[in-house]
Amino acid sequence: MDRVLQSKINRRLTKDSAMKWLFAAVVAAVLGITFFLFYGIGADGVGRLNLSFFTNFGSRFPEKAGIKAALVGTLALMAVVIPVSMFLGLCSAIYLEEYAKKNKWTAFIEMNISNLAGVPSVVFGLLGLTVFVRALSLGNSILAAGLTMSLLILPIIIVASQEALRSVPDTLREASYGMGATKWQTIIHVILPSATGSILTGSILSFSRAIGETAPLIVLGIPVIVQFLPTGPLSTFTALPMQIYDWAKRPQPEFADAASAGIIALMVLLITMNGFAIYFRNRSEKKLKN
């Protein structure tokens, strides 16, 4: 009897430790894939990274092609996306967290936001094409693309900012009211400053999403080979992911190397931004602990 029991227990223990190692192996595989992904792309592109890659415009000749217009275009796009999406996102978050009453209208707005977050980016492109490019006749300009991208990341910014505002302890609000401050003064001088860190973290992550998005730009009809720098918000432009997409589609292997190099530039930009996001997150975590 004891022997039967013992062997059953042993079998279960063996299964337990086998599964533990299986799970660990899957995690290791996922980490391995991540590494492989970066290495596979990085190794091909590094050779193409030199100064002229950053100072040349796009070209039919792969060895001459550079990302000057794309990089400046991406930064110009962000110059529209950041203020527009931050303004819309912060105002919405403040309204929903600090002012909105719990009624049907508020529930409806919240439902809209969660629906909007699940809409595929290519559909946002169709919205932008109809509304901004055609109806408002902004053409395939920085402004049209910037407004489309702002709407795309708006739900992420709102939700992140709402969470940030919610994490501000009520004692701060009460202390401010106790000093005779109005609600708006409390929001501007007390709540927003203490939520800044986490709001920045969420916003920066959503900006990096906007930088990497390609599908809406394609639908908006953003051109690829642009031989000039944008001159204003209504100027046409190209962006880094568009440039990468164009190179990746071409059959010549030299263009694939250019695409790899473009991806390295894009990833360096994104990882730098993520670094800032993590820095702000850690700082705000420390602040809340004290």
Binding site: I41, S208, I211, G212, T214, P241, I244, L270, N274
Partner: peptide
Amino acid sequence: GIPTIVYGFF
């Protein structure tokens, strides 16, 4: 955080 264009190229 990796853009899907990068996944596509991969």
